[in-house]
């Protein structure tokens, strides 16, 4: 994982609009994210997960890390993408992300490379939200309909 401290461009610090919501589920929570492309829907879904762990308004962009996810199919790719993000938060650098930019979105070989902007999670500075135990495949949906310009993902996270 590379790490670039400081030296952010103006573009890096632009915060994307919120295109996600949290849907009802008995014991867990369902993330629903959308965008103008499937790539954007994936990015939004990742941010939705971080938004459930803390209030993103308190998070500053101080560092950037790069993650990589590989899988055998689209659902697997979404799963592993989120799992990598969760891992980034759970261990060193304990990164809570405000912004995600997918730099490689390969739907042929099912590979994602993503730049994660944020800072180390700090109790006291960042409000504590819910803890995400795991990503699940249950009721996972990926809507990819370029004709209607519909790009949506649904993921249930175990909390």
């Amino acid at each position: 994982m590379d790490e670039e401290m400081g030296g952010f461009t103006h573009d890096d610090l632009i915060i994307p609009p919120v295109k996600y919501e949290y849907l009802d589920h008995t014991a867990d929570v369902q993330l629903h994210a959308w965008g103008d492309s499937l790539k954007e829907a994936f990015e939004q879904c990742g941010m939705a997960m971080f938004g459930y762990m803390t209030d993103l308004a308190y998070v500053q962009i101080k560092e950037v890390h790069t993650i990589e996810a590989n899988a055998d199919d689209m659902m697997g790719l979404l799963y592993h993408f989120l799992d990598e993000l969760l891992y980034l938060f759970s261990v060193e650098p304990f990164l809570i992300c405000k912004k995600l930019v997918i730099t490689e979105f390969n739907t042929e070989e099912f590979r994602i490379v993503c730049k994660c902007y944020g800072e180390e999670f700090q109790i006291g500075k960042h409000p504590q939200g819910s803890e995400v135990k795991a990503i699940t495949y249950s009721a996972m949906q990926i809507v990819d309909e370029p004709k209607d310009n519909r790009f949506e993902v649904f993921v249930i996270i175990d909390i």
């Binding site: 949290y22 849907l23 009802d24 589920h25 008995t26 014991a27 867990d28 929570v29 819910s130 909390i159």
Partner: peptide, 8 residues
């Protein structure tokens, strides 16, 4: 055991 969803 939960009865209401978290969001609700």
């Amino acid at each position: 055991g939960r009865a209401l969803s978290r969001a609700k």
